[in-house]
Design a binder for these strands. Structure first.
Lengths: 331, 331
DNA sequence: TTGTAAGCGTTATCAG
DNA sequence: CTGATAACGCTTACAA
């Protein structure tokens, strides 16, 4: 708990000298340096970071707004954020918002209150109030991205990815392809649904809107969506879920209903979470570079904070169609 | 970016009055209050939290040391921490340490540097240097707990839980029960192995040490452990994994090897992660109140920070044996 | 009810 | 090379 004063007193120098010894050791004489360092040790001195931040008007910390940490995809993104932040000497304030706009606003306010230097928002919503007076704070939007974000963004080409997956199913002979979507208002979900429709249109397949089930990315909603689709008389031969978690829930229902995957019905997911390959059968899915999302977000945010120019202020990360055993030829 | 001074200037009052208006509005006259509030609005004033923290010598934030966020069990614990912290008005600094002691020490130092008021350590290791001079900082140890922690702790009765699971298998007629353990040096892993041996001993079953496989809680290690056990000539009839993630990996191998669960071999996990019930067959496991772990940790830490007395400085959370379909009578 | 001013710990500036 | 001092933004005695 000793402050720089205590060290100065012990070393018989001024506080300025102590500060200098610690920041630019080469500017003080070796003799002084030695005495100061000894005093630092003796006093068990740890510079007060709050004071340093206050003085520097800079906190070296970032706020991360994450809708659910319990989703393993976000867990990977956060892991990437952590790693990169660490590399740049930034701390990460993790804020679990459950997608609640009030909560997001409250946490984003940590930046306006200068407890953090910037925000990474992982959802398609601007957490700052839209008043004309308020200035823009450093922010990056990643993963679920606004259509026209007021800041740099990092996204996937969701439309193309979903189209590729649907084309994969069509190539297997499927004509009756259902989809379990994410939340209605999400641009990401809309893009994936668009890609699905693109593929159908290109193949000349009439799109049946009642084969799109809403979901919320949880296994439970996948289970419920699959049930709703299977209980119909015009049952699809393939099911494309907008997340692996939903696909896992759907798979559970399909087995429950006595259907064999992929023999009776093909199943596809999105994200390539770790458990996707441990499913029975292993899940065909779209892999996303989750950790890279986090790293890119940190890099772009810090560049913004430092006021540097960013050449590509909107980045698109690569995806990959991963064909495993849950999709097969139409039976 | 305007400070309290700017507001004071706009309102034509002193900075003290502005401060008072915001902290204890009832102590200023209605007229002044009105003027100040208008000025706050006009200036788009946000109190500088760094300055407040500096002045108060209190940051209202907590450091959380988590070995891997990618494990869904920890994700739930963190979620509980978040919720509780929010309730108490604390921010959470999430630190992903990968179990690296250097990294842990560096993050724990945020407390000695007074950037945070306390630490929650989710691993069995003291992140503070053991020098005699250094004082103790507020800390709580949860989940994976030291045998003799220098701070309040929250744990599971791992030994009893593992004994109960093993007894469940014995009650099903199993005599050849193997185990896939966690990392060698972890007290938690040792306790679970002890509980397993306790049950065997009580049932008069000779314990075969070569039926204990080491693992590291990942699905990969579960897969490898299961393979090592199944490739033996004296194959076990039941397999108890110290985590669901390992059980999921093991299940994958068992199916790969053509074994039916539980007909040919019973399989049990630990933790009850969300995917446990979506396995095929759904996993028999031990459920832990993960979110409650996090909440309790925050409560105890804040009590420590506030210097309150804590009646039970070591808490044991309840577990529950969850019998699902992956365990069955010996075939 | 309001204003003045000290002080939290650190660093940068300016003299010496 | 070193020391004195102001300043960062805020709160709180204390005085008026």
């Amino acid at each position: 708990m000793s402050s720089i004063r205590e060290v100065a007193r012990l070393a018989g120098v001024s506080v300025a000298t102590v500060s200098r010894t610690l920041k630019k050791p080469d500017v003080v004489s070796p003799k002084t340096r030695e005495r100061v360092l000894a005093a630092v040790d003796k006093a068990d001195y740890h510079p007060n970071r709050t004071a340093i931040q206050f003085r520097a008007q800079k906190t070296q910390s970032l706020v991360v707004l994450v809708p659910t940490i319990a989703n393993t995809f976000y867990a990977r993104v956060i892991s990437g954020i952590q790693q990169a932040a660490q590399r740049f000497g930034y701390a990460v304030l993790l804020c679990h918002t459950q997608g609640d706009e009030q909560v997001e606003a409250r946490y984003a306010a940590l930046v306006s209150a200068r407890q953090a230097d910037g925000v990474i928002q992982l959802r398609a919503h601007d957490p700052f109030p839209a008043t004309a007076t308020s200035q823009r704070w450093p922010m990056v939007n990643a993963c679920e991205v606004l259509d026209d974000p007021p800041c740099p963004s990092i996204r996937l080409d969701n439309r193309t990815a979903a189209r590729e997956m649907t084309e994969h199913l069509i190539a297997l002979g499927h004509r009756h392809i259902a989809m379990i979507k994410g939340p209605r208002r999400s641009p990401l979900t809309r893009d994936r649904a668009d890609g699905y429709r693109d593929a159908l249109a290109r193949a000349g397949i009439t799109h049946n809107p009642s084969w799109i089930q809403p979901g919320d990315f949880t296994p439970q909603s996948g289970y419920a969506g699959a049930r709703a689709l299977i209980e119909r008389t015009d049952r699809p031969t393939a099911l494309f879920c907008e997340s692996d978690e939903m696909a896992i829930g759907a798979l559970h229902y399909l087995k429950h209903a006595g259907l064999r995957v992929p023999h009776d019905i093909s199943l596809a997911g999105f994200d390539d979470i770790e458990f996707a390959r441990y499913c029975d059968p292993p899940l065909t899915t779209i892999s996303q570079p989750a950790e890279a999302f986090g790293e890119a977000a940190v890099e772009m945010l810090i560049a913004t904070i430092d006021g540097q120019e960013i050449d590509t202020s909107h980045r698109t990360m690569p995806h990959r169609l991963l064909i495993r055993a849950s999709t097969g030829p139409v039976g």
